[in-house]
Amino acid sequence: MDIVSTLRVNRTERPFTADTRTTLLDALREQLDLTGTKKGCDQGACGACTVLLDGKRVLSCLSLAAQCEGREVTTIEGLARDGKLHPVQAAFIRHDGFQCGYCTPGQIMSAVALLKEGRAGSDEEIREFMSGNLCRCGAYPNIVAAIREVARLGSESQ
């Protein structure tokens, strides 16, 4: 059964037609050409599909696209503004917080949310609250370093 709906993605209204069974993840990737959000398990067990929904990090593989009508979706493509990388994106490059890069969009979305949640107080806290994002390349220590740096710079600038 098809539904005609509109998603508000990265500050833009995006109408789409999809199956009622279509997940937010598949709608982004297959309908809206936003392939930055990745499918790593499609079962809520890896975090690669993490997006922000109304500012909170969620898994797009376990959300129906239809459920998200009228809500604000932010994906990795919506993070950089005016061609300038988000500080978390820049820190991931500086600290080599990825290798293959496949989990990276999910890691970065999760890290952006984590900073907003105020959970970057210590390395231990960062590790725990980034544990919903698997990285098979094992870039975890570098991911922690990147987040630590952004957290420190953020608190210094305040």
């Binding site: 930055g36 990388l85 990825f98």
Partner: peptide, 12 residues
Amino acid sequence: DRVDGPLKVTGA
């Protein structure tokens, strides 16, 4: 830094 870094951190 990884030369493919900007592509990877932007999902591109």
